[in-house]
Amino acid sequence: MALTVAIAFHGFNQSPKYGSVRPISAEQRPAALNQKDIEKIAHLARLEVSGQECAAYAADLSRILGLIEQMNAIATDHVAPMAQPETTPLRFRDDAVTQNGDPERLLALAPASAHGLYLVPRVIE
């Protein structure tokens, strides 16, 4: 049992898409994150987090997860998910060129640009 928990919990890189790792039941779910978990999450979110901060975030996030896991007190087996207030159906736009902004003005906002391109450190594919 303990092994299952550990694998599932540290299984970030094992699955390219969500849903393929079996959801963990309430009793199994760990309520604490360690520094390694924070490093993985921070990487996914592209946030630099120093070693010191890592410990603080691990403690904070663990407390927040403790709050979040109160959700398990309620059974929701047959409840339809609600992603947003269901008030208005999706509307369409006509296929017309209505706005092309002001390209030079937009480009002027960039921290680094040249020849009309946004510049970033070289990407290796």
Binding site: L117, Y118, R122
Partner: peptide, 13 residues
């Protein structure tokens, strides 16, 4: 992404 577009940087169009 246009690699090596400018001075060894990647340009984004």
């Amino acid at each position: 992404s246009l690699h090596d577009a400018v001075d060894g940087m990647t340009g984004v169009d």
